[in-house]
Simulated assay, not measured.
Amino acid sequence: MLTIYGVLRSRATRPLWLLAEAGTAFTHIPVIQSYRLANPAAADAPLNTLSPEFLAISPQSAVPVMVDGDLVLTESLAITLYLARQYGGDLAPRDAAELAQAEQWALFGGISIDLPGIDIIYTYADGLADTPDGAAKIAAAVDRLSRPLARLEAHLGQHDHLIGNRFTVADIMVAECLRYSQAHKPLHTAYPNTFAWLTRCQSRPAFVDMMTRRNAEPV
């Protein structure tokens, strides 16, 4: 049985969005990050990334984790790409060239987009964006994003999607990496094609439903 471990307030959104788009049946086991709990080892603590039963599956102590038969994967983008190929139908790459492009976009999102975006979203979430330190942190993140977003902007100026002229796993992976940066509105002005594409991706019913459920989870 296909099982995904992880709460929606984590990178588990990537494979969970893919599965929602595909309409694939699976078991979802919420596992909260241990750092969000006062005492993750308490007897009444919810299942978390330091729970012994979860560590038996993922010694790295991180979510998401996918179990599909004997296969265990622990990286969100690898999980999402695997699920697309196994269960995603037209969301999956159609041939070797599209697979190479999807893998390229996954690496692009994970290496170039994700971490600067994390700096941005946490600075805003912590209410520090208007402080000198917060503004400096955001400015540094924006500088790191300038080259990859310029590349994405040029591509999306000529294409509606990342590969194959259709919505695919590549769009899901990069859109979820970019979501962390979208709180910084000047980026929307600087990269209009990119954020128009992100809006289209996030307007899909599967994403809207997923985010509604995510926002209902405890912060």
Rank of each mutant, 00 (worst) to 15 (best):
A129I: 09
G109V: 14
E98P: 10
G88W: 08
T199G: 14
Q101Y: 08
D44Q: 07
M1T: 13
E217L: 03
M211E: 00
A56C: 06
D114M: 14
G127D: 01
P132V: 01
L107F: 14
L50Y: 09
D68N: 14
S112F: 08
A129R: 04
R9G: 07
W17G: 00
P148G: 05
R147F: 12
R200I: 15
N165A: 05
I32N: 02
R200K: 11
A141Q: 04
D130G: 15
W17H: 01
Q158S: 14
A135Q: 14
P52S: 10
C177L: 12
P59I: 12
G89T: 01
P15W: 00
G164Y: 05
A25D: 07
Q86D: 15
S76M: 09
P46D: 13
P148H: 07
I138N: 09
T168I: 11
T27I: 09
R14Q: 04
A102P: 02
V7N: 11
G110S: 11
A175S: 10
Y124R: 13
L156F: 06
P40Y: 02
V31A: 05
Y35W: 11
R11H: 02
A140R: 11
L162Y: 04
A196H: 08
V142G: 01
Q33I: 08
A136T: 06
A129L: 12
H161Y: 13
V31Q: 03
A196N: 06
T27Y: 07
I113L: 15
H161C: 14
R200L: 15
E217G: 04
Y122M: 15
D209Y: 02
A25Q: 09
R214K: 04
F167Y: 14
S76N: 10
